[in-house]
Amino acid sequence: MTLEILKTKEELRQLIDVYAILGDEKKIAEQMSVFTPDIVYQVYMNDFLAANVSGRDNLEKEFNGHAAQVKTYFTLNGQHNVEIDGDAASGVSFSQIKMIRESEGKDVLTDYSVKYEDKYINESGKWFIKERIGYFVIIESRVLGN
């Protein structure tokens, strides 16, 4: 493995970590900087297509609407495997996402176990997410003791 490939793998790992950090902090406008303007973003809840958004502007609106309903996000990124082909790459990563929402005056914690399939593109020396498909494989909710 060459030094250039190692450097690229680290840059792509940082890209998905920055995506998670900015999302957890609800810095949605800043989070959009990790995507290409023509981003395609899909979410599957088990086998159901729950979201299918194209374009960074549309995605920002979608994320802002979602973030308005969530009190707290907390994301842990796990494995990240990528295949690099010049200025393009594809990757699979796994995340554990926790969200706290309020329902009937109580905090409800939902745990999501997610597998992401990504396509990346390098433009002018910087990597971006061009396509992201999230497969929410395990979803578990419970009321927190307030």
Rank of each mutant, 00 (worst) to 15 (best):
V40S: 09
Y120I: 03
M32T: 06
T110K: 11
D107V: 00
N77G: 14
E62Y: 15
G86M: 10
K71W: 01
R101K: 15
G134H: 02
E117H: 11
L49A: 10
E123I: 15
Y41F: 15
S141H: 09
Y41G: 01
A51W: 09
K106L: 03
I97N: 00
F48D: 14
V143H: 07
I129Q: 03
Y41V: 07
V108E: 06
F63C: 08
G125E: 12
A68N: 15
M1T: 11
N77A: 11
V92I: 15
V40I: 12
N122S: 14
I129R: 07
E117M: 05
M32A: 14
V18C: 08
D38R: 12
K130T: 06
L49T: 10
Y73P: 00
K130W: 06
K115I: 12
G105M: 07
F136Y: 08
M32R: 05
E4I: 12
I133K: 15
I16P: 00
T36A: 11
I139R: 12
Q79V: 10
V137G: 05
K106Q: 11
G134M: 08
I133S: 13
H80V: 06
Y135K: 11
E104M: 04
E62C: 09
E62F: 15
I21Y: 02
Q31F: 02
G145P: 02
L22H: 04
V108K: 04
K98E: 08
Y116V: 03
V143A: 11
I129D: 06
E60T: 10
V137N: 12
D118H: 12
F63H: 04
Y73E: 00
A50I: 08
M32Q: 04
Q69N: 11
S90C: 13
Y116Q: 01
A50C: 08
S103E: 15
Q69F: 05
K27A: 07
A20Q: 01
Y116H: 03
K115T: 13
I21H: 01
E25P: 01
G91F: 09
L109T: 00
P37Y: 10
N64T: 10
E140N: 15
G65N: 15
I39W: 04
N58M: 05
A20W: 00
K126R: 15
R13A: 06
E123H: 13
I84W: 08
Q96N: 12
G134E: 14
N81R: 09
I139F: 03
A88S: 14
Y19P: 00
V70T: 05
Y41P: 02
F48A: 10
D57W: 04
G91C: 07
Q96E: 08
F48M: 13
F35H: 12
